[in-house]
Nucleic acid binder design. Structure first.
Lengths: 202, 202
DNA sequence: GTCAGCTTCGAGCGAACGTTCGATAGAACT
DNA sequence: AGTTCTATCGAACGTTCGCTCGAAGCTGAC
């Protein structure tokens, strides 16, 4: 009984993984259920035994991305230096994004292809995750607000979410290298310029 | 004769504009030629008189984005302060992106739906534009390379290209405000930290 | 008035789509 | 042995897709 459940789950995830890869490669609408079935070595009707619809497949793919992201966020050290917390958050986000590039491409690219309830549910989760990051940034005590906080968070997410478009391990190091560099750029970028000369010339 | 040419061009661009809006709203594959024809108040066959195929429509939409971007880039002051040049470039890029949100959404989102020659042609133009920006950044003489240049440019483009996802005029000001803030964040971010204390604590 | 060329269309083609149905084979329980 | 449940499939349904065809209407030239 548990064995059967185990087998069922394996096939279910197998279908999801193939759907994820094909959605990422061709886009949601250009990847057909027949393609997914072929990739999963199953008939079309057989695929429908596990995935009730194409929309549901897309939903499951997107949903488990948030499952993982939130699991990582839940492990943030709740106390301590806000800067350290943001660092941990960014590291986790980038690592997850690089390890699950396909899933992330689908999320950024095809989530809007979802309709009705499923879309709203995911939008809620996305807003939740985003506001979590906003909190982290707003708790950094930058002595002087050199950049509007709303823009600062958006810029940070822009940097992060763009990474799958260009990142190559051989050129850019591992995901922690990436995180370190982006954090350096971002934290210095939103900090008050030190009262050096040079900057405030002409 | 010229009058006829004028009318033809107007209809052609009318078709393109409606295609652009629908591609942006629903995505390339989800927007049908019938939808576009209906939006342009023309029959399907009539639409095909101006646009030889759906692929061609997508190509034209993407191509004129690069036309405009490159036209703006060509007006960069060729001499003078590299920092000023980058500022002008970023301002132009953001202004164009905000004024042509639909076109930009199509470009970022659906360019990969193009096939064969058309895709490669656009890829060439994109690489060209990107390397132009890379040059501008690399010519900033930052005294100390605190961030790898490859990452710096990618981070800049990440910030810029993410803007259409969140920008709202009422909250974020006009596109020049956006550009100023992003430039401030970016330029400080890639600059050598001034030898203040505070930063290099524990 | 006739003719040629530009513009527009209704109707329809073949293909691919998401999805469903009824059947079948095996395993599991009684 | 018979019954039920799980897993799988080939075949097809109805719809929509990108696209084309042949026939019109219109306009200006001769």
């Amino acid at each position: 009984m548990q064995q059967q459940q185990h087998v069922y789950d394996r096939r279910f995830e197998d279908g999801l993984n193939n759907a994820e890869a094909l959605f990422a490669e061709r886009g949601f609408h250009a990847a057909s259920m027949r393609d997914i079935a072929r990739a999963a070595r199953i008939s079309v009707a057989g695929l429908y035994y596990y995935l009730p619809s194409k929309q549901a497949a897309l939903y499951f793919v997107c949903n488990r991305v948030f499952d993982r992201l939130e699991a990582a966020a839940r492990e943030l050290p709740s106390c301590g230096d806000p800067r350290r917390r943001l660092e941990t958050f960014v590291r986790g986000h980038l690592r997850h994004m690089i390890e699950n590039r396909d899933a992330y491409r689908v999320l950024l690219h095809d989530m809007k292809a979802l309709e009705g309830d499923l879309r709203s549910k995911l939008r809620v989760r996305r807003r939740h995750y985003f506001s979590l990051a906003s909190d982290l940034v707003s708790r950094l005590e930058t002595k002087n607000e050199v950049v509007p906080p709303r823009l600062a968070v958006a810029a940070l997410f822009g940097m992060l979410n763009w990474a799958p478009m260009w990142y190559q391990r051989e050129l850019d190091g591992d995901s922690d290298d990436l995180a370190d560099n982006m954090l350096a750029l971002f934290l210095r970028g939103i900090s008050e310029p030190a009262p050096s000369a040079e900057e405030a010339r002409a």
